[in-house]
């Protein structure tokens, strides 16, 4: 059995990002459901939050290959 320990580290790093992305979209949907007229700004903010959190997971992914 061979492989890279880095990938396991990536898997661990993704857990946090996954939880974060789930929270962002879940609460975003809830907010849109409560205030459908605020959909535009909410959606934009959801995607910003998603992108910021996703960056952490991607950093983990890239560092798994880079280091």
């Amino acid at each position: 059995m061979e492989g890279s320990l880095n990938v396991i580290g990536y898997g661990i790093s993704v857990i946090g990002a996954g939880i974060g992305v789930g929270i962002v979209f879940g609460l975003g949907m809830q907010a849109i459901a409560r205030q459908p007229e605020a959909r535009g700004p909410l959606q934009t903010n959801i995607y910003i939050g998603f992108a910021l959190i996703e960056a952490l997971a991607l950093l983990g992914f890239v560092l798994a290959f880079a280091i």
Binding site: A51, L52, E54, A55, L58, L59, F61, V62, F65
Partner: peptide, 13 residues
Amino acid sequence: ATHAIRLFATMFA
């Protein structure tokens, strides 16, 4: 850095 790496990493992955 994250601005660049986000795009790069997504496409890479």
